[in-house]
Amino acid sequence: MKIRKYLELTNKRKCLTEKSKLTDASTIGKVITRNITHWRIADDICQHGEDFVLAHLKYPPNTPIYVYTKEVDQYVSKSVINRGGQETTNVAIIVDYMKRFPNAVFLDIGANVGVFAITLATLGFRVIAFDCQIGNAARICSSMKAGGLTDKLTIVHNAVSNVHQKVSLRTGKQNIGMTWLVKTQLGKPTVDTVSLDDLLEIYDFKQAVIKMDIELSEVKALTGAFNFFQQVRVEAILMEFLESPIESKFGEKVLDFMKSHHLKPNDTNKLNEWEFNKWDTHDILFVRQ
């Protein structure tokens, strides 16, 4: 009897996975999410909220983007509302590399309200934007629809890690972009984690450019991307590089990963480009050697 129940449960899970199998075409213009077993399209997340603030990016000119109020988000949203952009130098770097590799997909890992993602999609590139905050995913979805980008953009509402688990989110005061993953805690919002390797269940990418800004979870994200980097030619990664108090030997682990996948720091203006302790910036571009 136990064996029969086990087989019935296994078959049920298999059928559920088969029914929910997604493809590249079926995910364009959608919010998707993955739990421990399978991906699904999350139309319930793509809902426009009354508290969404409509702003416009200066580049590309007059691009609509939905953000938070200045009071809720004193950093990215306030900058977009007041100046029409955020991290303009880094956005320009990504735009440059996507123009060099126009057939690549741009992965915006830690998309926030989507400044990078919306910019690149508006310029005509294929974009997949990841964010663990449901409010961010919903705003990117509204921006996608407002800008007519449903043929270019997919939004993934998950945290990126190396294991499948449910985690809680801790967010900085008036700073939506500063969100950490913590063990599940009562009363805090939760989200499922995915790995970059999980993308291979849906996509058959040949080439990619990546921006990664996920508040000290970069090592876990890279650890869960071995197969992805084996199958996809990653041309460049722009990442926030900060020593982590929770990840031992953060710098060494990141650089070991980059070296093993033929990526190196682009320009540190130092005698030894691998001496990360001497770097004078936290935003590091790794490029294919």
Results as ranks from 00 to 15, higher is better:
121 A>R: 07
122 T>L: 00
123 L>N: 04
123 L>F: 04
124 G>N: 07
124 G>P: 03
125 F>M: 02
126 R>Q: 14
126 R>K: 15
127 V>F: 10
129 A>V: 08
130 F>N: 05
130 F>I: 08
133 Q>W: 12
133 Q>S: 14
134 I>Q: 12
135 G>W: 12
136 N>D: 08
137 A>G: 07
137 A>N: 07
138 A>P: 00
138 A>V: 01
139 R>Q: 12
140 I>H: 06
140 I>V: 13
141 C>P: 02
141 C>T: 05
144 M>I: 05
145 K>I: 15
147 G>H: 07
147 G>N: 09
147 G>C: 05
148 G>M: 09
150 T>V: 01
150 T>F: 04
152 K>H: 13
153 L>V: 12
153 L>Q: 05
154 T>S: 09
155 I>L: 03
155 I>N: 04
156 V>Q: 10
157 H>K: 12
157 H>T: 02
158 N>H: 09
159 A>L: 03
159 A>H: 03
161 S>T: 09
161 S>P: 00
162 N>G: 00
163 V>E: 15
163 V>S: 07
164 H>N: 09
164 H>S: 14
166 K>I: 12
168 S>W: 13
168 S>Q: 11
168 S>E: 11
168 S>A: 08
168 S>H: 10
169 L>H: 04
169 L>S: 05
171 T>N: 02
172 G>Y: 14
173 K>S: 11
174 Q>M: 06
174 Q>G: 00
175 N>C: 09
175 N>G: 03
175 N>L: 07
177 G>A: 07
179 T>F: 10
179 T>N: 04
183 K>C: 01
185 Q>L: 09
187 G>M: 14
187 G>I: 13
188 K>D: 09
188 K>N: 09
189 P>Q: 10
189 P>H: 13
189 P>Y: 10
189 P>C: 09
190 T>G: 03
190 T>F: 01
192 D>I: 04
195 S>Q: 12
196 L>G: 03
197 D>F: 03
197 D>H: 05
200 L>W: 02
200 L>S: 02
200 L>D: 01
201 E>T: 13
203 Y>I: 01
204 D>G: 05
204 D>K: 11
205 F>Q: 08
207 Q>L: 07
208 A>D: 11
208 A>G: 11
210 I>L: 14
